[in-house]
Amino acid sequence: MTTTLHAIRVGLRRGGTELMLSLKSTQDLSFYILMALIALGYLYLRRDTIVEGTDLSFPTLAMPSLLGSLMVFGLVMGPAGQLAMDREDGTLLRAKAVPGGILGYVMGQIVTMSGSLVPMLLIVLLPGAFLFDDLMPSGGAGWIRLLWVMLLGIVAILPIGIIIGSLVPSLQKVNTWGLFPMMILAGISGIFYPIQALWGWLQGVAQAFPMYWMGLGMRSAFLPDEAASLELQESWQTGQMITVLSIWAILGLVLAPILLRRMARRQSGSSVGAAREQAAQWVR
């Protein structure tokens, strides 16, 4: 038990180092900035649009949805890409070769991936607050709501990323397995336009996935209560949100360790070597 706890502690430290290295990395920072520019640019172009039936501007309404979808993208694509890469480049094998290393590695991933949400969201939110009006969680209750929605989101969505990262055959396939489904979900989950614009059955599909609920949850934290009248059922549907995200969380927490362990078991020097060969061919 103490050795397990120790491995977890080393893993937390690993996550801290990774996070710090990521914040110092030009590559990661420019990725965040590029994403922020696209999101803010889109909102800025439509800054004068007032949403029908309200006195709220489009950016005010769309910003929380965007933040919700960014969270989902980050929590799925982050671990999926990182796991696929760490498997190929031997990071995971290194972890396997030291006592408690795999547990530490996973803890490190959780810290890094949850932690990198902060710069990713802040870099969109802070400039947004200066550009647009009414763009902060509504009151103390709003902030508290923001916090628990984010925490629930992490628990529900991070395992999905880990599962995709454990199953995806190679780094090159991560977009097909992760990014494309995410983009489709973003398109049907009321992120960019009201979900009511879609057919009923498609609304049903969207509501089965965390993307819709994260958008809704973030709106419920940021927007005044009157804005709930724009939603389906004219309500924030807090109960349903907790239920759906909890189901995803339970599924993920059961499946992710199993698939992760299966993947780690298959790691060996020759599998890393084979990936290296493969990558050399890609370069050529």
Binding site: D86, T91, G269, V272
Partner: peptide, 8 residues
Amino acid sequence: VLQSWRDH
């Protein structure tokens, strides 16, 4: 002793 490639 593993043969590192580009990890870390």
